[in-house]
């Protein structure tokens, strides 16, 4: 932001690093979308392949397909998204910026030592 900001200089990404992160994240995203799409497609498609899927009776009177569309898919979406978000964040943390040493105030070599304290 402002060139005089002492913190801004410490947080800087080079184009090569960003490009690497971008490609890794793209793999993460494409992988998760593939899982997402195959499950969403499988749920209605299984009904034509497997009678048990749409006509079987699980606990009480729901068919596996009914249970899947009524609860399972939402849980699945949530899990896929949580996994993707966690993985993407972890990838970004490891591939951009330094290792998390700024959180350690006892560290005598920490770059934060030079930072002005209010």
């Amino acid at each position: 932001m402002r060139p005089t900001d002492p913190l801004a200089a410490e947080e800087h990404d080079t184009p090569a690093e960003v490009d690497a992160t971008f490609r890794t994240l793209r793999r993460v995203a494409v992988g998760h979308v593939a899982v997402f799409a195959s499950v969403v497609i499988a749920v209605p498609l299984l009904a034509t392949a497997l009678d048990w899927w749409s006509q079987g009776r699980l606990i009480g009177g729901m068919s596996p397909m009914f249970a899947m569309t009524a609860f399972g898919l939402y849980v699945f979406f949530f899990v896929v998204c949580l996994a993707a978000a966690t993985l993407s964040t972890a990838v970004e943390e490891r591939m951009l910026g330094g290792p998390g040493h700024e959180g350690d105030p006892q560290d005598p070599l920490s770059p934060n030592d030079g930072a002005p304290r209010p």
Binding site: A16, D19, A20, R23, T24, R27, L87, V91
Partner: peptide, 12 residues
């Protein structure tokens, strides 16, 4: 000197 990183998420 140009550099290109190509890294699997699992490898990290």
């Amino acid at each position: 000197v140009q550099v290109r990183y190509d890294i699997d998420p699992q490898v990290l």
